[in-house]
Nucleic acid binder design. Structure first.
Length: 487
RNA sequence: GGCGCGUUCGUCUAGUGGCCUAGGACACCGCUCUCUCAAGGCGGAGAUCACGGGUUCGAAUCCCGUACGCGCUACCA
C-alpha cells in the first residue's frame, strides 16, 4: 500500500457530466494503479447553485461504473467530514490565520463598486481583476467601517515574482504573479471559494496528486500561493484534457446527452463506458481498443495522457458497446437486458419477461444491437400474438399479390407438415420447398419474415420460428391468408 | 485585451532524431457471406504530421516565430 491519495470532488449542482466522470475515472485508475486511495469529497460551497438530489446522482453514476471510493461523505474516513459545508470552521480558522499573518485581508467593496470597476476596464481594455482598494486600508479606516459591514477575504497576491510548477501532463508551466489579482478566498456568506477550500481540504486529507480538468491550470498558481503562505507541502498537479463536442466547443446540453446517467438510460454497458472514457485522452499503445477495467488499472499512466482535448465520438462508443454486448454470454446478456428493463421499461415489451424464453431469443439479437435499448423493438414479435404489418411489406421483389396468395397457401401445408419444429429441420424443409417452386429464396422467406415479425429487418427466420412454435407459426400463416382475401 | 495550454487521416490515437514513401481503430466505400439486417472475412479511399524559419548527414519528433483553437481572467466550480 502506497501513500498516494487522490480525490474526486463533484459539486452537487446537477447531473454527473461526462467530462467530470472521466476525470473521476482517471483519478480512480491512478489510485488503483498505485495501490493508493481514492477519496470522494462534496464541494458544495456555492449555495446558489445547489440542486436537490444532485449528490445522489453523482454517487449513483460512480457506482454504476464500478468506481468505488475509500473515503467519502457516505462512508466517512480518517479525515472527515468530506462535505465542505460541514467544514466551515476550518476554512474560517485558516482564513483568519492568513489575515493575521499578512497573507490576506478583508475587503469591504460592494458588489456595485466591483461591477463599476469592471465596466471601466472594459472601456480602457486594461488589466482586469480587483483593483486592490482594500489591500492597504489602514486601521483607522478599518475601525470606521467596523464589523457591521459585510466583507469578503481576499488573498494578498505578491506583486512580483512568478510561480513555476511542473504539471505531470504538460511539463513546466510559469505564471507571473502580477497577472494574478487578489482573489476572494472567503465569501461574505462565510463560505470559502473553491481556491481556499480545495487547498485546505487537499492538505488536511493528505492528497498527494491533484488531477483535475485543464480549465484549472490557470488558477493553479493561486493555489500554490496559499500552500506557500501556510507553509504546506505542495501536491503534484496533473491537468487533464477536456472532452469536446463535435464542433470542438465544450460539451454541453445542446450537443445531446452530457450526463453519464443518460448513457445508462440509452442502454450502454458500464464496462464499455469505462473503456470508452478511458480511451478518450489516454491510450495503451495505439492498437488496443477493447481493454478490460483490470487491464486499464494495471496499465494506466499519466505519461500516456494526451495534452489536447478530445471530441466525444458517439459512433465509436456505439461500436465499442456493440463489441461488449457481443462479448457477453447468453446468460449475461439476458441478465443485463432484464436489469435494464427493470429500470427503464421497454414500450414494446410486456413488463414481466420469462428468463428462459429471453435467453433463447438473445443469441438471435446479440450481434444486431449496439445498445440494450435497441433490443425491444427487435424482439417484440416474440411477445405478441398479432403482429401488425402493412400489406405492401409482404410484397417481395418481383411478386404480385396473387403470387403471394399462392405462396402462402403452399407454405401453410408445408409448415403444418413439419413435425420436428426445430430450426434446422424447418430450414431444410423450407429450402426444399423453395427449390421445387418457381420462386426465389428471398421472396418466400421474405413473406414469412414479414408475417412473423412485422419487420423488414429482423432477426433470423428459422430460429425465430422455432422459438415462436409450430402452433403459432401455422396460425399466423392462415391469418395472413385471410387478410389477403379480406382486403 | 492579458495570461496560459494545445495543434498527426472527418474522429480517437501510435509515434520521444534514421524502423515513417506516418501504424491502428471508428465512420465511409467496394467485394464476400446471405432470408432481411447485422456480425465476420478481404480490400479501398483518407494526414504534404497547422504554417514559416532554423539546428542536424537526417525532424512528425529539438529550437524560434506566426496562425488558429480552447481555457482562465466571478463573493462558480
Amino acid at each position: 500500500m502506497s501513500n498516494i491519495r487522490v480525490r474526486y470532488p463533484p459539486s452537487p449542482t446537477g447531473e454527473p457530466h461526462l467530462g467530470n466522470i472521466r476525470t473521476a475515472l482517471f483519478n480512480w485508475l491512478f489510485a488503483k494503479n498505485n495501490k493508493g486511495k481514492f477519496i470522494l469529497r462534496v464541494e458544495d460551497t456555492d449555495r446558489n447553485r445547489l440542486v436537490e438530489g444532485a449528490m445522489e446522482s453523482q454517487l449513483e453514476a460512480l457506482k454504476w461504473l464500478g468506481i468505488d471510493w475509500d473515503e467519502g461523505p457516505d462512508i466517512g474516513g480518517a479525515y472527515k467530514p468530506y462535505t465542505q459545508s460541514e467544514r466551515l470552521d476550518i476554512y474560517k480558522k485558516i482564513s483568519d490565520r492568513l489575515i493575521q499573518d499578512g497573507f490576506a485581508y478583508k475587503c469591504y467593496c460592494s458588489q456595485e463598486r466591483l461591477a463599476q470597476m469592471r465596466e471601466g476596464y472594459k472601456k480602457t481594455q486594461s488589466i482586469v481583476g480587483y483593483d486592490r482598494k482594500c489591500r492597504n486600508i489602514n486601521s483607522l479606516e478599518l475601525g470606521e467601517i467596523n464589523n457591521e459591514k459585510s466583507y469578503v477575504v481576499r488573498f494578498k497576491t505578491p506583486l512580483e515574482g512568478k510561480i513555476i510548477f511542473n504539471d505531470l501532463v504538460r511539463g513546466q508551466v510559469e505564471f507571473e504573479n502580477i497577472r494574478l489579482d487578489d482573489f476572494v478566498i472567503l465569501k461574505s456568506d462565510g463560505f470559502p471559494t473553491y481556491h481556499l477550500a480545495n487547498v485546505i481540504d487537499d492538505y488536511y486529507m493528505k492528497i498527494t496528486h491533484v488531477m483535475r480538468a485543464e480549465e484549472w491550470l490557470s488558477s493553479t498558481p493561486k493555489h500554490i500561493h496559499i500552500y506557500n503562505s501556510m507553509n504546506w507541502e505542495i501536491p503534484e498537479f496533473a491537468h487533464l484534457p477536456i472532452i469536446l463536442a463535435p464542433d470542438k466547443s465544450k460539451l454541453s446540453k445542446r450537443h445531446g446527452a452530457t450526463s453519464i446517467l443518460e448513457y445508462r438510460r440509452l442502454g450502454y454497458l458500464p464496462n464499455a463506458m469505462v473503456n470508452f472514457l478511458a480511451k478518450l485522452g489516454w491510450s495503451l499503445d495505439g492498437e488496443t481498443e477493447k481493454i478490460e477495467t483490470s487491464e486499464l488499472i494495471s496499465n494506466f499512466s499519466l505519461k500516456k495522457v494526451s495534452k489536447s482535448g478530445a471530441i466525444f465520438d458517439i459512433d465509436k462508443l456505439n461500436w465499442l458497446n456493440g463489441v461488449y454486448i457481443r462479448g457477453l454470454t447468453a446468460d449475461e446478456l439476458t441478465f443485463e437486458l432484464l436489469d435494464y428493463w427493470k429500470i427503464f421499461p421497454s414500450l414494446e415489451l410486456p413488463v414481466n419477461i420469462d428468463y428462459d424464453l429471453l435467453k433463447r431469443i438473445v443469441p438471435l439479437i446479440s450481434e444486431r444491437i449496439k445498445t440494450l435499448n435497441d433490443a425491444g423493438p427487435l424482439i417484440s414479435y416474440f411477445f405478441s400474438d398479432t403482429v401488425k404489418y402493412k400489406k405492401e411489406q409482404i410484397l417481395q421483389k418481383g411478386l404480385n399479390f396473387s403470387d403471394v396468395n399462392i405462396i402462402l397457401e403452399k407454405l401453410y401445408s408445408e409448415v403444418i407438415a413439419i413435425d420436428d419444429f426445430e430450426s434446422n429441420v424447418i430450414e431444410t424443409n423450407l429450402r426444399n420447398f423453395v427449390s421445387e417452386s418457381n420462386y426465389k429464396t428471398g421472396q418466400v422467406l421474405g413473406i414469412l419474415r414479414v408475417i412473423y415479425t412485422g419487420l423488414d429487418v429482423a432477426p433470423p427466420l428459422f430460429e425465430s420460428m422455432e422459438i415462436l412454435g409450430k402452433k403459432h407459426c401455422v396460425s399466423v400463416i392462415s391469418r395472413a391468408i385471410d387478410n389477403m382475401k379480406s382486403s
